[in-house]
Design a protein around this nucleic acid. Structure first.
Length: 494
RNA sequence: GGCGGCAUAGCCAAGUGGUAAGGCAGAGGUCUGCAAAACCUCCAUUCCCGUGUUCGAAUCACGGUGCCGCCUCCA
């Protein structure tokens, strides 16, 4: 089995071969921190987190870097609108980013470089590009000369003469910037500061970096000239990633990244969720709402589709994911709930339930199927099918244990199944712990037994209304009654 | 206009030449005073349409239809 990725650059699936055996240099385009993250961001970072987790599980040492774009028109606009500063807006949204992502169990990157921390490196690349004639200063700005880079368009599969400048309807021909460009697709590496804007000194006058150059500079500074994997949303392929390639490869004469991976969009009613369309739901809106789904249900919702396909966000799909999460959760909690009954000796250990401490048989069918699925361009829907089969099996065993008090299935086999589920789920970032605050009923066992006796008498007297009342009363206190054949009533805390 | 993607059950979604995974929802049964829970069973002769290639196609080719993304804000 070999791990393969669909590489946007080559438009086909390719076996993954890192530059250095056992190590992976991975860069993920982060957010521009002018607002809260929405579900589109959630999908992107959940997906790349999952790729990273899988690589780690395979034994790679993954150096995962993700940036924050903390200088940008939108941040400036936001700061002006609320009468604060660019730094304040950025800091607030960076803090919110971490809050949201950690709830979704997205692992922290190794480093989070910011554009404003790399002004020197940015200027260095711009200088080099000017020296090599790939860039030209114009009126305090510096532009990249796209026609100078023969393979411009290789990532997005387009050619300059076939592109329609301004097709997106966002280019204003009267914008003075476009008159300074030698070609409509030339893009800004450095932008002259307008009065009152934050600015850095440069050989071209005070200003700030353009959007694309920061990634080129940060990758070079933190990971090197060529990295293994570069990821981001599909909407970044053009122009952002195309421009990154043009900048970096012109300056270094080396490939920027060997594998380019892009995730599909989150849609609403068939249309892309985006700020400009106003059809977005922020992560915190969703997760903080009354009757909000569990964050893991959102993660599951994302992973139930292949990462390259668009997914439609609907209330129905989310509700389905919530139910699915309940199923998975039952399986994941199996060991905590039934380990003692099954005679496992380590349930009190601190390491109990920790995926890192579990040794699962690599040759088991479940693990093999999981790996086959994940090796095939991170096929998480197929991988999840493996988890559900394990979880449903465990849930059934757990129900039998609850209702019968014993099972005919071998305890060690159940332990192996449970550990396999916990480990594989963790690779997908799906994790849960038993509730710490158990809603323990204030009733003692004797009191419960007394109630059950009352109910038995009511039933014997055919007073079913009273019998049902007692059953409801106990249910309200977290005690579930199960009537068995022969007039026996068993109970357990729900 | 250019480039790219998608179409599989009520909903979501794998599968890309060998006879339709999985989830959600649903149905029937056992049990029960009833209900709930639990357990058992069932749930696409068919993969947008047409033509073709093949012993064999959801999978390949050609031609349609519909939807979506990108073409300098974007995850």
């Amino acid at each position: 089995m070999t791990l393969t990725f669909y590489n946007t650059l080559t438009r086909r699936k390719q076996p993954f071969e890192p530059l250095e055996p056992g190590k992976v240099a991975m860069y993920c385009c982060g957010v521009t921190v002018y607002d809260y993250c929405h579900l589109g961001h959630a999908r992107s970072y959940i997906v790349w987190d999952t790729v990273r987790r899988y690589l780690m599980w395979l034994g790679y040492q993954v150096r995962y870097i993700q940036n924050f774009t903390d200088i940008d028109d939108k941040i400036l606009n936001r700061a002006n609108a609320e009468g604060s500063t660019m730094t304040e807006v950025a800091e607030r949204n960076i803090a919110a980013y971490f809050e949201d992502m950690r709830r979704l169990n997205v692992l922290d990157a190794v480093e989070y470089p910011r554009a404003t921390e790399h002004i020197d490196e940015i200027q260095q690349i711009i200088k080099t590009l000017i020296e090599l004639d790939y860039a030209y200063p114009a009126g305090g700005d510096v532009y990249y000369r796209v026609q100078r880079f023969p393979s411009y368009g290789k990532l997005s599969g387009r050619q300059l003469d076939q592109m329609q400048a301004g097709a997106s309807g966002r280019v204003d021909a009267s914008d003075p910037e476009s008159s300074r460009k030698q070609h409509p697709f030339d893009f800004a590496l450095w932008k002259a500061a307008k009065p009152g804007e934050p600015a850095w000194e440069s050989p071209w006058g005070p200003g700030r970096p353009g959007w694309h150059i920061e990634c080129s500079a940060m990758i070079r500074a933190r990971l090197g000239d060529t990295i293994d994997i570069h990821t981001g949303g599909g909407d970044l392929v053009f122009p952002h990633h195309e421009n990154e390639i043009a900048q970096s490869e012109a300056a270094t004469r080396k490939p920027l990244a060997n594998y380019w991976l892009h995730n599909g969009m989150v849609n609403v009613g068939g249309e892309k969720m985006s700020k400009s369309l106003g059809n977005f739901t922020t992560i915190r809106q969703l997760l903080n709402a009354p009757n909000a789904p569990h964050p893991m249900a959102l993660r599951l919702f994302v992973l139930q589709a292949h990462y390259r396909k668009p997914i439609d966000f609907t209330a129905e799909a989310m509700a389905s994911a919530e139910q699915s999460w309940e199923t998975l959760k039952d399986g994941l909690l199996f060991g905590y709930k039934f380990g003692n009954v099954l005679g496992w000796t380590d349930t009190a250990d601190a390491s109990f339930g920790q995926p890192d401490s579990m040794r699962i048989p690599d040759e088991s069918e479940a693990v093999q199927k999981f790996r086959t699925a994940m090796d095939d361009d991170i096929n998480t829907p197929a991988a999840l099918a493996v988890l559900f089969e394990l979880a449903k099996d465990l849930r059934r065993e757990g129900n039998i244990l609850t209702h019968e008090g014993k099972t005919t299935t071998d305890s060690q086999l159940l332990r192996e199944q449970w550990q396999t589920l916990v480990v594989l789920a963790q690779v997908l970032g799906l994790e849960t712990q038993p509730e710490t605050e158990t809603p323990i009923s204030g009733l003692s066992e004797a009191e419960i037994e007394a109630k059950i006796n009352q109910r038995r008498e009511a039933k014997a007297a055919k007073n079913f209304a009273e019998a049902d009342r007692i059953r409801e009363e106990l249910k309200g206190q977290g005690v579930i009654l199960v009537d068995k054949p022969g007039g026996i009533t068993e109970w357990h805390r729900g």
